[in-house]
């Protein structure tokens, strides 16, 4: 017996062709790496009429230095992001987060676009992309737009129907750390994660961004911790002070004690690592 029920498969070669198919099809679903979508279809009650595969669209491929920053095509594999020298140098938190996702074969199949466009709270990359101030090029019926990643993640309903083309990272964030907690094994989905990105200068950390993923709600920027770190020499940072600022930032979020303790521990570990690195 066939594992998947029938649907019509399409492999358009341009974003416009894919958008046209998306508009014309009865119940379409976009296929990037397939690790979420095909698994879901095995159990789905509401089944798509059309599967629109994105793998042949050249505009969605590759990692490039544009001169103004990095461009990462939405169909770039997680394994390629984890091993890219360019991303490791300029957005190391993103490479670290990509290296943590699931297992080796799933990283060889899953794409950055699929990870982010799934809009699941429990995926790893949104926190890292917010930490490096990424923007997304987004193609929808109303045309192409460049949006801040946070705005993209907040799109809902018909506004969220479109195709993620690429990610743009303008600023350099060579200092990056990614902490992640799972229920049992490393390869499990994260229960909580902390993404940190910054630039290092002689007079202290610059452009600090700290983002928490609780897997329960959209990612949260830690504004109090960011202001504590900004322009501060790492030797002056204090573990307990940073953890207290994190608690302030997450106050009112109804976060359970377990996750909060994990994140406070991560914050202390982050400060310790930064001090050791003599930034």
């Amino acid at each position: 017996m066939a594992i998947l029920k029938d649907f019509q498969y399409h492999a358009p070669e341009s974003v416009d062709e894919a958008l046209d198919l998306l508009r014309r099809s009865g119940k379409p679903v976009l296929l990037a790496g397939g690790t979420f979508v095909l698994n879901t279809l095995k159990k789905a009650v509401a089944y798509p009429t059309d599967v629109i595969a994105l793998r042949k669209i050249k505009a969605l491929q590759g990692i490039a230095d544009t001169g103004e920053g990095i461009s990462i095509g939405a169909m770039t594999l997680l394994s390629d992001i984890a091993s890219s020298p360019l991303i490791r140098e300029r957005a190391s938190v993103l490479a670290r987060a990509a290296a943590c996702v699931a297992t080796t074969p799933l990283r060889h199949m899953g794409t950055i676009g699929g990870n982010v466009a799934s809009r699941f709270f429990w995926v790893d990359l949104p926190a890292a992309l917010v930490a490096v101030g990424a923007k997304v090029e987004w193609a929808a019926g109303s045309g192409k737009k460049v949006l801040d990643i946070e705005k993209f993640l907040a799109l809902k309903g018909p506004d969220a129907k479109g195709i993620l083309v690429r990610f743009l990272i303008a600023e350099k964030h060579p200092v990056g750390e990614y902490f992640r907690h799972t229920q049992a094994m490393e390869v499990d989905l994260p229960l909580a994660a902390l993404a940190f990105a910054a630039r290092k200068q002689a007079d202290g950390l610059k452009d600090v961004r700290l983002v928490v993923n609780t897997a329960l709600s959209p990612v949260v920027r830690l504004k109090s911790v960011e202001s504590l770190f900004e322009n501060t020499k790492t030797s002056r940072l204090k573990e307990k002070e940073a953890a207290a600022a994190l608690r302030r930032d997450l106050e009112g979020g109804k976060l359970d004690d377990y996750r909060l303790q994990c994140l406070c521990g991560d914050m202390e570990a982050l400060v310790e690592r930064l001090k050791r690195a003599k930034t």
Partner: peptide, 19 residues
Amino acid sequence: CTVLLDGNNVLSCLILTLE
């Protein structure tokens, strides 16, 4: 269900043949 696709280990239960 592992196979190699262009040298990478991937899972053939999560790939459409057409892909």
